[in-house]
Design a protein around this nucleic acid. Structure first.
Lengths: 188, 188
DNA sequence: TCAGATTGTCTGTGATTCAGACTGTCTTGA
DNA sequence: TCAAGACAGTCTGAATCACAGACAATCTGA
């Protein structure tokens, strides 16, 4: 046990939040170069990916899936539209909705970027052998799926139940902090 | 395979960054209630934890471990000092350093909060059985340890190597975005 | 037809990061 | 002994960013 844990700062190695934060930071660092060609970096990548996979019927649903605020969604999509990677189309079934659909160029760019992302991800998971990587991904998926399933239904732990109450409204709260090359996001 | 993956938005379930971000978000949400009694919330908790475990000899080293900027460290420690949880002591060996040491009260409070944190963590990992949880923690530790070990030595993947170059200087970039009950952090 | 809910957008406010300057201290070399 | 450079901690200012709130357009149900 603990073969590699000795490399971690004492006391922090058991801090689950610290470990998750470090892992996310490592991932963002490793994939920054791959994502920086897209408008808005990692978040642009996620929106583009959601658009290509048609995982949401409107911007709000997409924002909820990605853990973003709906007001942030506006200029993320704006930037992708400006770059010609996605389009906003009126939804014939409900004209309040804007369907965010990827263009051919967007699909092509996503392919390229995804490839670089996979390389970086493999780099991050280098300490694990292949079966371990798959195990890790599976466990991570199950944890996240469990969390999403619990989001609507209050849990048994009162601490968690209480904290969920005021966190339902688009809190997100993490993800990348790069790509500050945002210039004219807001008109005068 | 993929028993639970069907609960995740299509296309995103394979996005490693999205999974990590969601997991961290879930953790922060679950532990918010536990950490909000401490000054500066989660980050206050991490600084206090580092102080109790004496994982660093000065503020800058502590900031590096926690992935914080050194200028942020100042008022995080300020708030903890104000609450009587830690003390700044001059380092007799090097008077440039300030040793951040926990008080008895700080140690007691950390114990209490850690207990609540563990409860929330267990809640988060509920979808996994006990051996799986330990496996998950181990794999996470190894990934993070691998990343930290690579930080100084350039890797073989050029993409990653390049991105590391400009990310060495206090970039961090994730962690919590809560606890906005900061009032008088800066004097007039 | 009308009240209420929902989507997308815009604006303002406050929080937060981060570069840069500065002081006090240590180290090194002449 | 002294000067120059490096480093820790602090403070300030600028830029960025999240998010609540308001708004118009639209849909739904009575």
């Amino acid at each position: 046990m603990k073969e590699l844990a000795c490399d971690l700062p004492p006391g922090l190695e058991v801090d689950f939040g610290w470990l998750l934060g470090q892992a996310l930071h490592a991932y963002l660092t490793a994939t920054r170069r791959a994502a920086e060609d897209l408008p808005s970096g990692h978040r642009g990548y996620q929106v583009l990916s959601a658009a290509v996979h048609e995982s949401a019927r409107n911007q709000i649903e997409m924002a909820r899936q990605l853990g973003l605020d709906r007001t942030v969604m506006v200029y993320l999509v704006d930037d992708l539209v400006k770059a010609g990677l996605v389009e906003r189309r009126p939804d014939p079934a409900d004209r309040r909705n804007r369907l965010v659909v990827a263009t051919d160029l967007g699909r092509k760019r996503l392919d390229e970027v995804s490839c670089a992302m996979d390389c970086a991800e493999a780099q991050l998971l280098e300490p694990l052998d292949e079966p371990e990587r798959e195990t890790f991904r599976q466990l991570l998926r199950r944890v996240v799926a469990g969390h999403l399933a619990h989001e609507g239904a209050p849990s048994t732990c009162s601490v968690v139940a209480e904290s969920l109450k005021d966190a339902l409204g688009a809190d997100h709260g993490d993800q990348q902090r790069d790509e500050r090359a945002k210039v004219d996001r807001r008109g005068p």
